[in-house]
Computed example of a mutant assay.
Amino acid sequence: MSKRTAPEQKPAEDIPVVGRRQPCPCGSGKRYKACHGASGGAAKVKVTRPFEGLAAECELVALREFVPSATARLPLASGSEEIQLATVLPMAAAALVRTDGVAFIGLQVQTKSGDVSRDLARAVEWVRTAEPGESLAVVGPEDAPAGSVPARLQDLLDPDARLDVQVHEDFSWWMPEGVEATGEVAMSLERANSAIMPTQRLETEGVHAAYWVDATDRAHLRWVRPEPEERLISALARLSARGELALGEDSRYAGSFRAHGLLVPVWDLDREKHPDEWAEPAAALGRRLDEALASLDERSLDADERRARDGLRGRQITVR
Score class of each variant (00 low, 15 high):
Arg20Ser: 11
Arg64Cys: 02
Ser113Lys: 03
Asp115Met: 10
Ala38Pro: 05
Arg122Lys: 03
Lys30His: 07
Val109Thr: 11
Ser69Trp: 05
Leu153Gln: 02
Glu125His: 04
Ala121Glu: 13
Leu76Ile: 13
Glu13Ser: 07
Ala151Asn: 12
Glu52Asp: 15
Pro141Asn: 04
Lys112Met: 14
Ser80Gly: 15
Val138His: 08
Ala94Ser: 14
Ile83Phe: 12
Phe66Thr: 06
Leu157Gln: 00
Arg64Tyr: 10
Thr111Lys: 08
Leu89Asp: 03
Ser78Pro: 03
Leu120Gln: 08
Pro23Gly: 14
Ile105Pro: 05
Lys112Leu: 15
Arg31Leu: 15
Gln84Arg: 09
Pro16Glu: 15
Ala62Ser: 11
Pro75Gly: 14
Arg98Lys: 15
Leu54Ser: 03
Ala72Val: 00
Cys35Trp: 01
Glu142Lys: 06
Asp143Met: 10
Gly114Cys: 01
Gly106Trp: 04
Ala56Pro: 08
Glu125Gln: 03
Gln108Met: 06
Val88Glu: 14
Gln110Gly: 13
Ser80Met: 15
Arg21Cys: 12
Pro141Ala: 02
Arg118Trp: 01
Pro132Ile: 05
Leu153Trp: 03
Leu156Val: 15
Ala55Val: 13
Thr48Leu: 14
Cys26His: 10
Ala55Phe: 02
Gln108Asp: 15
Ala38Lys: 02
Cys35Phe: 03
Phe104Arg: 05
Val139Gln: 04
Asp100Pro: 05
Arg20Gly: 10
Ala34Leu: 14
Glu65Thr: 15
